[in-house]
Simulated assay, not measured.
Amino acid sequence: MKRFYLIGFALLMGFDTLTQISFKLAGNHALPVEANLAWLLRLFGEPWVYGAVLGYLGAFFTWMSLLKHAPIGPAFAASHLEVISVMALSVWLFHEPLTAAKLLGATAILAGIVCLGLAEREAAPHDSPGGA
């Protein structure tokens, strides 16, 4: 089951990251933003828009599969790992600054996932059938 979680959350993070990076790339290529049909046609002419759609679909089906088996607290927290991967890729691809606040936020996300995972592990033995 541990392998299922690792593969599942890696896939979820990959799909979510693909979605966010694809939106950024599509938006950058469709500049300037204008409220007209020409801009929409330019935007939907970008292949990155379809990468975002593919990412959303992949994330949806991966998330639904994970929710069948994973405890909701740690699963919900782990589903936000893409914030860290998108931040890292944005520094590399878009030359966005890596600030102390961003690193602190990434650390808080990781700490929250670890705390929820540990709490779930501690609660699991008490929830067994016939147990006290």
Rank of each mutant, 00 (worst) to 15 (best):
K2E: 11
R3E: 12
F4Q: 10
I7P: 03
G8N: 02
L11Y: 00
L11D: 01
L12K: 00
F15P: 00
D16C: 13
T17V: 01
T19M: 11
Q20P: 01
I21S: 02
S22I: 03
S22H: 03
F23A: 04
K24M: 13
L25S: 11
A26Q: 06
N28G: 13
H29A: 15
P32W: 02
P32Y: 01
P32K: 04
E34G: 07
E34N: 09
A38I: 12
W39T: 05
L43Y: 15
L43C: 08
F44T: 10
F44G: 03
F44M: 11
F44C: 05
P47K: 11
G51T: 03
A52I: 02
G58L: 01
A59M: 06
F60M: 14
F61P: 03
T62L: 01
T62Q: 02
W63C: 08
W63Y: 15
M64K: 14
L67C: 08
L67F: 12
H69E: 07
G73D: 02
P74V: 07
A77V: 01
S79V: 02
E82V: 05
E82P: 03
V83Q: 03
S85E: 01
M87F: 15
V91K: 03
W92S: 10
L93M: 14
T99H: 11
K102P: 09
K102C: 09
L104V: 13
A106R: 06
T107Y: 03
A108I: 15
L110C: 10
G112F: 00
L118R: 15
L118N: 05
E120Y: 05
R121D: 12
P125N: 12
D127E: 14
D127H: 13
S128N: 12
S128G: 13
P129T: 09
G130K: 11
G130R: 12
G131K: 14
A132Y: 13
